[in-house]
């Protein structure tokens, strides 16, 4: 179970303050698939970062009773100056996993071949997405946080993600932030629409999509 209790986040810059959202409550049970909808800047990514513990809420708290992945976006969690292999080593070290198993999985999943010996800064965004995905799938989590990333890769990559995430790990919880109505409809059981600092949960995804498209 993941619980967000009265969550609020605001950013300060100098004397300006911008509130992204406030009084946000959310519960995600094991195995549940939840979508976040909202226009650019509505706070989808921020909410995912708070759930993942990357940033801290200004108010309220996030309680995690299951293991939660780091947010899968383009860059997050990488050291750009290190190679793909070095990043895999780093991840295997901090999560206490066997490097060789992770290495095999990453090679197989990313199909990046000798690119893995190159620094990550030289990768295209699609290549990064492959690596990011491979690393987080190599460490098993109860809940995956995904920020738009599925849309980046090519067809072959999307098919692989589909298989690894929705078929092989169908029992895991999933939190997905996306603009794609089709994806949300296809994957999610519930969806939250974020607008003007307020998050409203709809148990009917179709309804959420209607609200979202009317924004």
């Amino acid at each position: 179970m993941i619980r967000c209790l009265d969550l609020a986040k605001s950013y300060k810059h100098g004397h300006r303050q911008k509130t992204v959202f406030k009084d946000l409550n959310l519960e995600v049970a094991p195995g549940e698939k939840v979508g976040f909808l909202g226009r650019n800047g509505a706070g989808k990514t921020t909410l995912i970062k708070l759930i993942g513990g990357v940033e801290m809420p200004t108010k309220g708290k996030v309680v995690r009773d299951m293991s939660v992945s780091w947010p899968l976006g383009f860059g997050g969690g990488f050291q750009g100056s290190l190679t793909g292999y070095d990043n895999a080593r780093f991840i295997s070290r901090i999560y206490g996993h066997d490097y060789l198993a992770i290495k095999d999985f990453v090679e197989d999943f990313t199909e990046l071949g000798s690119h893995l010996k190159m620094p990550v800064v030289t990768y295209s965004s699609g290549m990064r997405a492959r690596l990011a995905f491979a690393l987080s799938l190599a460490i098993e989590f109860d809940c995956y946080l995904i920020d738009e990333i599925i849309l980046v890769g090519d067809h072959n990559f999307q098919r692989k993600c589909q298989y690894e995430l929705f078929e092989k790990r169908a029992d895991r919880a999933l939190i997905l932030a996306s603009h794609s109505a089709e994806l949300i409809r296809q994957c999610c059981e519930r969806a939250m629409v974020l607008d003007k600092g307020v998050g409203v949960m709809y148990s009917d995804v179709g309804e959420a999509l209607n609200v979202y498209s009317a924004l």
């Binding site: 993942g52 939660v68 780091w70 860059g75 969690g77 990488f78 050291q79 999560y95």
Partner: peptide, 9 residues
């Protein structure tokens, strides 16, 4: 900052 993606750090 990018290391903050991993909560154990």
């Amino acid at each position: 900052a990018s290391l903050m993606y991993h909560r154990q750090i």
